[in-house]
Design a protein around this nucleic acid. Structure first.
Lengths: 199, 199, 199, 199
DNA sequence: CATGAATGAGTTTTCATTCAT
DNA sequence: CATGAATGAAAACTCATTCAT
C-alpha cells in the first residue's frame, strides 16, 4: 500500500481532462477550441495531441469520467440505505451534487448531446444509458399507483434533476433539501409522508 | 383585401428562418454553418445576408419566433379555462405540443443556451424569461402545501417538460396524456384528484 | 458557333488547375501544399476551396485532364494512319509530346501514383487504365513473333516512354525521332525495316 | 573471430533502415512520417534520432544501400559471363530481381526522386548515376547498328526495367525470362538470335 | 540507449462575412 | 434581390525535431 505506484503518470493529462470538462460544460463542445484548451492548460496546441488523439476522443474521455463519477457518488450514497424511498432520495441528492459542484465532469454528460460528435455518438449514448439504467433501478423500487405511468414519472424526475444547473445558485437551499423537494410530489402520489428529520 | 398588402412579403425570409430553426434545433447553433443554411434553402451564402445581418441575428429571430409560438399556443389553450389546475394542465400540454411537433422553433429555445451567442445572450435570456414568467403565473395559481418549496416545484416541472424532446417518441402516449402525468404528482401533493374525463 | 458561350467561366479555375498540374508534376503531390498553390496563383488558400472541394479533388481534376489531353493528342495523331507500325509510331510520338511539353498535365499522370491519394486511388487507376487500354489497341495491331511475349513487350515500351521525362532534354533529338528510335527494336523483332523518309 | 568485432553493432539501426526502405518504397518519402517509422520499428520517435540525424539522412542511407545492393547483385551475376549479350542479360535480370524482390531498398532508388529531398538531391543524383554508369558499361559492350541512337536505346531499356514494379506480379513469368524478353528486341536490332537454353 | 513530453511551424480545411456586378 | 468570388481568421490536426531525465 505504498504511495509510489501512481508516480510516473504524466501530470498534464488530468489537467487537460479537467480543463476540457470545465470548458465543455461552460461553453459547449463546438464553442470550445483546442486553442482554448491549450490556453487553459498552458500547453501548446500540439502538445495536447500527445495526450489525446482527437477532440472527440477528449470528449469521450471526459464523458466516461463524468458518468463514472456520478455512478460512484450515487452508489456510495445509496450503499447504507435499504428503504426504497430513502434510497432514491439519496441517489437524487448524489446526482445533484455531481452536476452542481465545481467539478464539471457530470455537467458535461448533461449538456453535451451525443449528436454533437457524430462519430462517437453511439458510445456517448451508451454511457448515458449506463447511468440512466442504474437510476431506473432505484426508481422502480418505489411503489407508484398502478394507474400512473411510471416511465413518464421517471423521466420527469430525471428532467427535473438535469434542469437544476440552469437555475440552481450556490448559497441557496442545500442540495439534499432540493432532492427532497424533487421527490416530495412523487411521495405524495404514492401516499407516503416524507420523514421528519433534516437530511 | 387589395393586392398591395401581400405583395412584397413573398420573399424567402420565412423559408430561411424555418430552415435555421430546424438546423439549430437538430444540430445546435455552432454546428450549423451559414453554408448549411444556404444549402438547405437553395440560396447562396451571400443571399442570406440580404435577409439577415448576421448569424446571431438569425438565431435571435428564431428565438423570438419560438418564444412567441409557445406563448400564443399556451394562451390559446388556456383561454377557456378558469380552474387553476385545469389551466396549468392545458398550459403544459400546449408547451409540450410546441416543443414536440415538427416545427422546430420552440425546440431551439430549449436547446440553444444564451451563452452560445455571447453578444446577444442578454436578449436571449430575456426572451426565455418572458415565457417562463408567464408559465410562473399559471403555476402560482395552484395551491401547494406551505411547507413545500413552490419555486423548486415550478422549476422541476419546467425541467421535466423541457426534457421530453430527449425521450418522447411520436406514436407513444398522446401529448395531453403526458401533460396530465407530469402534473399528477403535484396534484397529489396538493391533495387534488385528477379529473376523470379523457383529455 | 459564336465565341460568347465560354465567357462566364470563372477565370481562376483553369489557372488553378494549371498551377496544380505544374507543381504536382515538378514536386509531387505531397510536397505541394495548398499554400504553394495559393502563392502560385495569387489566391488566398481559402479561395482555392471555392473552386475545388479538396486537394484530392484537385489532383483528380488534373489527372482527368491529363489523361484526356494524351488521348486527344494521340487520337489526332493516329487519325490519318492506316498502317499499324506507322500508327503505333505516331501514337508514341504523340504520347511523348504530351509528357515532354511545357504543359505538365500528362506528366502528372506519370509521376503521381494512385496510392499517393488513397481515397481516390481507384479513380486514378481507372483513368490510367483508360489510356493504357487505348495504347494497347494500337500496340496489338502490330504483328510480333509468336515466341515472344507481347504483353511484356508492350509494357516495356510503355516504361521506356514514361521514363523519357527523366532524361530528355529540350534541344536534343526531335521527339518524333525519339519515337522512331523507341520503336526500332520492335520493328527489328518483327523483321520490319523502318521507313526511309525523315519523320 | 573474437567477440569484440560483432559486439556493438547489435543495435536497431538495421531494423530502422529496413523499415524506412519498406515505407519509403511503398508510400513515398513525404507520405512516410517519422512516427510511422517509429511505429513500424517499435521505437519512440526520439529514439530514431539516436541512430540517424534527420529524415533526409535516413533517406540517403537507404538510397546508398539500395544502390549498393543492386550493384553487388549485378556484379555477382555478371562475374562469370564474358559474352556481352549474355552479360547484359544477366545484369538486367539481377537488376530486376533487386527491384522486384521483397527487400525494398532498390525500389526506393527507383521511386524516390532526388527532388523529393532538396538538400541532398545532389547526393541522391550521384548515387543514381553511380549505378547507371555501371549499367551503361555493360550496355555499350553490345554492338548496335550505327544508324541507331544507342543512348536512347540504353535509356529505353532502363525505363522498361524500372517500370516493371508497376505491372509485375509474383507468380507470373520468372524474372530471368522477363529479362530475356526485355532484351530480345535489341538482340533483333543487332541481328543476334537469343540462345536456346532456359535461363 | 531510450523515452515521455513538448515545441513551433506547418498541414488541409472551414467559417462568417463582404462586395462588385 | 442575388450571385460568384473572395477574404482573413481560425479550426483541427501533423510533423520533424529536441531534450531533460
Amino acid at each position: 500500500m505504498g504511495t509510489t505506484a501512481v508516480k510516473r503518470q504524466s501530470s498534464r493529462w488530468p489537467t487537460l481532462r479537467d480543463a476540457a470538462a470545465t470548458l465543455f460544460a461552460e461553453r459547449g463542445y463546438h464553442a470550445t477550441s483546442m486553442r482554448d484548451l491549450a490556453a487553459a492548460t498552458a500547453m501548446t496546441p500540439g502538445a495536447i495531441y500527445f495526450h489525446v488523439a482527437s477532440k472527440q476522443a477528449l470528449l469521450l474521455a471526459v464523458y466516461e469520467e463524468g458518468v463514472q463519477r456520478i455512478l460512484d457518488r450515487v452508489e456510495a450514497a445509496v450503499a447504507v440505505e435499504r428503504e426504497p424511498w430513502a434510497r432514491l432520495e439519496k441517489a437524487i441528492a448524489a446526482h445533484l451534487e455531481s452536476i452542481l459542484d465545481a467539478s464539471a465532469y457530470a455537467r458535461v454528460v448533461i449538456r453535451i448531446l451525443p449528436t454533437d460528435a457524430l462519430e462517437i455518438s453511439a458510445q456517448l449514448t451508451q454511457l448515458r444509458d449506463r447511468y440512466e439504467s442504474r437510476f431506473a433501478r432505484y426508481f422502480s423500487a418505489v411503489p407508484l399507483p398502478r394507474d400512473r405511468d411510471a416511465g413518464i414519472a421517471r423521466r420527469a424526475l430525471l428532467g427535473a434533476m438535469n434542469w437544476t444547473p440552469v437555475w440552481y445558485k450556490e448559497g441557496g437551499k442545500a442540495v439534499p433539501t432540493v432532492a427532497r423537494e424533487l421527490l416530495a410530489p412523487l411521495r405524495a402520489l404514492a401516499g407516503v409522508k416524507p420523514p421528519r428529520g433534516r437530511k
